[in-house]
Design a binder for these strands. Structure first.
Lengths: 94, 94
DNA sequence: CTATTTTGGTTTATAATATAAACTAATTTA
DNA sequence: TAAATTAGTTTATATTATAAACCAAAATAG
């Protein structure tokens, strides 16, 4: 029987974000937006969900007086991502 | 920039079905239901979607007077599945 | 200057999707 | 012969994804 795929990660945008975050120290909102080619609104919502799950931490600061949002994957997030990938292998074969 | 994941395949149940169908000659509705642990209603709807996309062919016959629904992946379906897997590798790393 | 556009977002409304509930019809089984 | 089971379909609902509308500050154009 096929195992469940973590629904929080089984979303193109959220998976994309996690995929990007896993290979960098931290990333800015604008960079994630460019890389994922998503709308700011959508990205904002999905980042919140990842954050609420403890998969990432979001730091909201200011660069001068402009808002600066940076994201960083957590250990919990890395684990969830790895588990997701493992489960996925059951679906896509190897 | 991350590529788009075929939304028809990026669904746990439909991906599960395709994953099962790719390794068998054909499969019965009831078997797919067991393997995917899905409700009959949900499975029925998702099979129709895969069928409409030309990813599978559904054959509805009778075993005696009981309905017998069997599914088979198409060449187009195999190609779509393989493309999906390739794109996915961009997300999950190798 | 000051009006408009751009940047960097958030909030909220809507569109799309997944899923279950309700239903049909035939078939065992009690 | 009434009740439960099998094998599904159809439809309603809950969930999710996504964009539209919005806000505040800053840069740019006239």
């Amino acid at each position: 029987m096929l195992k469940e795929l973590d629904p929080l990660l089984h979303s193109q945008l959220r998976l994309g974000v996690m995929s990007l975050l896993i290979s960098v120290e931290s990333a800015e909102f604008t960079w994630l937006r460019e890389k994922t080619n998503s709308s700011a609104g959508n990205l904002s919502v999905q980042l919140d969900k990842l954050s609420e799950a403890g998969y990432i931490i979001i730091d909201k600061s200011f660069k001068g007086k402009k808002p600066l949002t940076t994201c960083k994957i957590t250990k919990h997030g890395i684990k969830a991502f790895e588990e997701y990938v493992n489960t996925l292998k059951q679906y896509i074969g190897k």
